[in-house]
């Protein structure tokens, strides 16, 4: 589908180089988000809107798409430039803040046991021009609600909340377009049971991977709870267990920071 080849219906063209001639437009739908772009002589125009259902299953791409004409009077975004490149890439990105995900029911992890928890979080869609790498926009498929994660109203971190379920079995987690799946492996080596009521996922530090079906994954997060009360957190290198053929697409928004992880994980188990 690269270089102007019409595309529709199949897997969403994450990371593929697309192109438009002058005056042509394209239309993309991923989850609840619909994006329309148009290339003009001295500007790119873009418009996007989000459907009411945040769990919508739409996944479609039409590039070029017929009848795309983004009028100046409409609610559009304009990006002026002297030489308007025709090639561009749509990339998935994880949220720009940490996500708090709740299991459908609070989970109790007994001492000496391990568990895999699968969570899905909404994606951001970035449109980047090629070959310059200039990003025109970076929009969420839907804007999650804000929440506060911390021991008090004075100390904590501003996060997004994901109201979808966290599942123990991947098969129970619907693979929705516009959402990335993360496996959290918890190894409870402490002497006490821990209550898992909510998961603090440092989404900006996770890298997106895309499989051949267009589903987005991240590398797993591995948490080890120790007897002394501390926790180790490591990121796996690839989501091989869930999607062996998935390839990395772009870098995380932030590079992982050890001290931040320690803080995040100490708050993970309230």
């Amino acid at each position: 589908m690269s270089h102007g080849e019409p595309a529709s219906g199949a897997a969403f063209p994450w990371g593929r180089e697309l192109s438009l001639e002058l005056g042509q437009g394209a239309r993309f739908s991923v989850g609840p988000l619909t994006i329309v772009v148009q290339r003009l002589a001295s500007e790119w125009r873009a418009a996007w809107e989000t459907a009411e259902d945040p769990l919508a299953m739409a996944s479609a791409a039409a590039c070029p798409a017929p009848d795309v004409d983004l009028d100046e009077d409409a609610d559009i975004h304009r990006f002026a430039m002297r030489d308007v490149p025709g090639r561009f890439v749509l990339s998935p990105r994880l949220a720009d803040r940490a996500m708090v995900v709740r299991p459908s029911r609070p989970l109790r992890l007994l001492p000496g046991t391990q568990a895999n928890i699968h969570v899905s979080t909404p994606l951001w869609v970035a449109m980047t021009l090629a070959p310059s790498g200039v990003t025109l926009f970076d929009e969420p498929v839907f804007r999650p609600s804000d929440t506060w994660f911390g021991p008090s109203t004075v100390e904590g971190e501003l996060c997004y909340v994901s109201r979808t379920s966290a599942r123990l079995e991947l098969a129970h987690l619907p693979l929705r377009p516009g959402r990335a799946v993360t496996r959290i492996h918890v190894d409870n080596r402490s002497g006490t049971a821990v209550n898992l009521e909510r998961v603090h996922l440092p989404a900006p530090e996770l890298q997106p991977f895309v499989d051949e079906a267009g589903h987005v994954w991240t590398q797993p997060v591995e948490v080890t709870l120790h007897a002394h009360g501390g926790a180790d957190v490591r990121y796996g290198s690839s989501p091989s267990q869930n999607a062996p053929a998935a390839v990395p697409l772009g870098a995380p928004r932030q590079s992982p920071r050890r001290h931040l992880l320690a803080r995040a994980m100490s708050a993970l188990w309230p």
Binding site: P144, D146, T147, T153
Partner: peptide
């Protein structure tokens, strides 16, 4: 819940 800027927690 419908207002995205209202916190889920507190």
């Amino acid at each position: 819940v419908d207002n995205p800027f209202v916190f889920d927690e507190p």
